[in-house]
Every structure is written in C-alpha cells, then in structure tokens.
Design a protein around this nucleic acid. Sequence first.
DNA 1: AGGACTGATAGCTAGTTCCGATCAACACGA
DNA 2: TCGTGTTGATCGGAACTAGCTATCAGTCCT
Lengths: 318, 318
Amino acid sequence: MATSAKPAAKRGARQPSLAQLRAFAAVAEHLHFRDAAAAIGMSQPALSGAVSALEETLGVTLLERTTRKVLLSSAGARLAVRARAVLDEVGALMEEADAVRAPFTGALRLGVIPTVAPYLLPTFIGLVHEKYPDLDLQVHEEQTSSLIEGLGAGRLDLLLLAVPLGVPGVTELPVFDEDFVLVTPLDHWLGGREGIPREALRELNLLLLDEGHCLRDQALDICREAGRADAPVTTTAAGLSTLVQLVAGGLGVTLLPRTAVRVETSRSNQLLTGYFADPAPTRRVALAMRTGAARAAEYEALAAALRGAAKPLPVRVL
Amino acid sequence: MATSAKPAAKRGARQPSLAQLRAFAAVAEHLHFRDAAAAIGMSQPALSGAVSALEETLGVTLLERTTRKVLLSSAGARLAVRARAVLDEVGALMEEADAVRAPFTGALRLGVIPTVAPYLLPTFIGLVHEKYPDLDLQVHEEQTSSLIEGLGAGRLDLLLLAVPLGVPGVTELPVFDEDFVLVTPLDHWLGGREGIPREALRELNLLLLDEGHCLRDQALDICREAGRADAPVTTTAAGLSTLVQLVAGGLGVTLLPRTAVRVETSRSNQLLTGYFADPAPTRRVALAMRTGAARAAEYEALAAALRGAAKPLPVRVL
DNA sequence: AGGACTGATAGCTAGTTCCGATCAACACGA
DNA sequence: TCGTGTTGATCGGAACTAGCTATCAGTCCT
C-alpha cells in the first residue's frame, strides 16, 4: 500500500542480503565475531556491520552480545535455522548450475554397504569409467545407518544399498531385486537342492553377520516370516567372506545374496548352494540420494546405466 | 583446484545476489522483461542487466531471447525452480522475523470445513478475540481438498478440519476426538437409544452429504467397517442442516458429529438422537499447517488454547 | 514501408559495502 | 590493584555495485 519506492525512508523494511545472512549464520555457528569473519573471508568490522544491518532490517535482536561473549537470542536461534536454509538453497542452486554446465564431472562421493560393495562395485566402477570418464568416483564403505547419516549431512552424494529405507528426504532409485540363497557345507541335507521351502529355515543353525549390517536384519526378518520364533544367532561374523568360511568349517549354514555367491563360494570346495522355492526371499538393491538433490538427473541416469549393466547378473532388473 | 581466492579475475565465480534471483524468477514467470520488471518494481534495463549478471556468475544460459519473445532454456527451467525456492526461504525468514517481533498480530487466513465451521467457529473466534485481539482472523469455508490445495499454495495459513490427512508437508495439531451420533425421526426404532451396535448401520437408510465432503467419506467408511457392502446413498444434501431436515421429514437417518447435535437438532421437534456402543465411531478434529511454517509456534499455541476451550464440549480433548 | 513492440546498451548517479585503524569494555594474572 | 590481551563496536575514506533515464537495434504486423 503505502510502500513508497524511491526514498525508502532510511530503514524502510528492506530485504536482507545474502551477505548479511551468511554473516549471521557464521556468527551463529562460531558465536565469535572474529572467528566467524575469518571463516567467511571478510573483516570483523564488515561482519559486525552486516549483522547489525540484518537486525535492523528484520527488526529483531538476533544476538545478545557483551564484549566478552556472544549468544543467540531465542529469536536468533530460530532465524539462524532459516538463514542456514536460505544459504543451503543458494548452495543447491549453484551446485545445480555447475551440474548443468558440466554434467558427470567432478567428485561423486558414493557410499556402499559392505554386503554389496565387493560384488557390484567392479561393475559400477567400470561403468562409470567407461561412460563418464570425468566423474571422480570416491567410494566409502559403511553400514546403512552411517550412510544415511552421511547423506543427510552432505558428506556423501549417493548411496548404493538395500532398500526400502523409509527415510523421509531420501529418494530411492531401484536397480534390481536379487534372491537369497542358502549356503551349506558339502554334507548338509539341503546342500545343492532347489525348491527349498522357507520353512526349512526354522530348524537350521543359521550364521549371521555382526549387529548393524542390514543383511543381518533381513535374514532375521526372513526367519521370522518363515515362522521361526527364537533368534537363530549363536555365532556372528564381520564379513560375508568370514561367514562363508565358517560354513565351510561346518559350523552351520548362512544366507547369501545371489550376487555374492560366485565370489564367495569359489574360495572353498567344501560348499554347496541351495535355492529356495518361488517366491524366494529377496532383497532390493538401489541407489539413494537426497530428495531434490542438485544432480538428481545425473543420479537417475546412473541408476538407469546400472540397471543396464546388471542385465548379465543373476538378478531381476527393475 | 586452481580457484585463486584474492584477485578473482573479474568474473570470479561470485555468489548470485537475491536481487538477481528475484529478477530471474520474475522473468521466468512472465517470460517478458518489461512485465517482469514492472512486477518487481524495477526498470527494464536494470532487470535485463541483473539477469545477464546472473547468467555470467552461474556460467549458464538461462534464457533463449529473441527480440520478440523469451523462453526458458532447459537449464533455466531447472534453475528457476531453485531460484523460487531460495526466494521462498527468504520470505519464510522475513515472515518468521515478523512473527517474532509481533506474535499474534496481523492476518491469519483460516480455512475450515463446512461440517466443523458452524459449531466450532464461535468458540474459536471468541478465543482469538479474547486472547489475541490483534490477530486479524480471516475465515474461508471450503472442502478439505480445496483447503489443502490452498494451504500448499500459500493462500491459507491454517486449517481446521478432520484428520488424518496423510499429506506430506502438512503437520496436524490434534484438538479433540468426537463421536458420531445417529439422528432419527421420532418414530424410528433406534430413536433415542444408547449402546447402539455399529452393525445396525447395515440396514439403515442413511442420508449423506454431497460428494467432496469428508464427512460423507467418513460415514461411508464407518458403514464399510460395520460390514455394509452396498452404498447406502439414495439422497444427498449440501449441508448438515438440510440433511437433518430430511431426517425430520422421515426420509431416513443420518450420522452427525457430536458437536453438531445441539445446533442441528434443536431446530425441529421431530428428531431423536441415538448413541453408539463403545467404542463409538469418531472423527478427529485438528488444526493443520505447512510443516515448518514461520508461525508454527503461534499455531501450536492456538491449538493448545483451542484444546482448553473445547473442554466444555462433549468431546475427548487431546 | 511504417509503426509499435521487443530486449540490449550507454552514461550517469547514488547508495552500499568493505577495509584498516582505532576505541571502549571486560576478564584474567601478577 | 593494575597491567595486558581479547572482545565487539565505531569511524572515515575508497571501491564497487546497482539502479535510473535515454536511446538503440531487431522483429513482427499492418
């Protein structure tokens, strides 16, 4: 209404500038003007003025400052979150601009779970090097919970893991479904059979991975669905290779995802693989990214390429 | 890598300014420089320069311009979404600053569904006028789908309706649960009874509201849960008052939320109310806001106040 | 061919931002 | 109690940015 354009009084409710928001966000983080100024590469007086100007335009006291220390007012704490959100959004915009200018270049920080990494990474890395040679692939092998945390914190860009995750803000790009198979010692009564009913799981001495591996939880779920009441765990192992060696040693049987079978069972001649009756228990392997990620289009292209590369594997491509 | 910090060439990959983003967003919306310039209150040359500068800093061609028309490049379309997101965040920040500076003042655009409005609004309006006299309450009565659309579009700030909605991005603040009661003509065999089993609904000639009212869907759900297979609908009405008049006229029975009973049944002496056996069918009434709304704290306070004001009503306050 | 519209450019002005230097208030140690 | 170092705020001047008005050049319609 009465918003005159030209003279604008002096403190006419103007818009905050990004520099002001950046200054405020830095102070809110460091709670120290000089450190904050150094962190964002401006002088302390400039930062001091920027924050004051922001308080002026917003009409809100953001900081309680004494000459000895700085703390956020309650309003400041709320608005610091907003300021950070704005800056993140700007960062996403610039990142997307970079991606548009030069797609499939730069760093791609990929997180992979241990029960997928050894079997699918050769395919994935080969694919990236061939189709996107300018992409600098940095692989991090961690467990699911750590990967999701890293994705949310911006430490990772893309995950390769078992889904569904059911995490808000994370978009899953399915790649394939693969069956679980039963790995047994040579002399086991289920060794090498096909059409094994799931109910057989009720009676087996099943070896599992350590806590934290999603494969462990999936195996327990499968047992529960098969009607097993007790926890089958007596021994656990840190990796699938170890697990298979325990099976070869006769300590029990285990479930292996189909893509892991060739690599893991070829190391020993003391093993047999058994296949479940349809519908066999499965897990879904997918890529996962932050919803609305700047490079979403590239990640989707990667997912499509990975589906193509998975065609020769003994899986059901999605 | 070779990003030198100090000299920064001349076009050193700087940060876009908010003014530039605003300019670009306006052009993306209008696809017309002069109109866009007028819309954001700056001159056409200034806007032209701002967009050019943005393209320069991002290193991306945002617009395909001929002298006769402007269209977004594909990169421009993607980045326009980001730009809009940044500006929305800034808007939220300023709005939150306003809210901090003067909570419970200014306009509050409240959307209410027709089956709640007549019975709860007197309470709500009274509450607002008493506790928050500076709040300018603007009420809009619409059906649920329209309200949710308006909330998402920023046309409305807060909704008062039946939940759960299950809409992402919308946060529900439950207020109370209320029973449904059965309204019948005087001579109906269920008239005035208590402990009515739900199964009675299977055989009744139930009158419903028109399509689009959530109360209609809830009534149909209740019938389905009661084991009724066919659709009970023969006649429909545009409002609860009409519905009750039809009942009084002997055309059938209907379900009414408990808060509506006093107002609607007092208009006729041809009506009786029947109560269901525990657990009676219920609906939950709640406030709903955009998740992360700038004035979330105020809306939560309003919800709490509304719960207090609902204590005298025949409902279960949450 | 003329007129009317488009976005781009030029030149100028005003406002803003930034820095270095400095100040005033406070905390801590001797 | 009195230095001494550290804190954020202030000052004055230089550099830059962004905005405006006026104008230009290309395109479409009549």
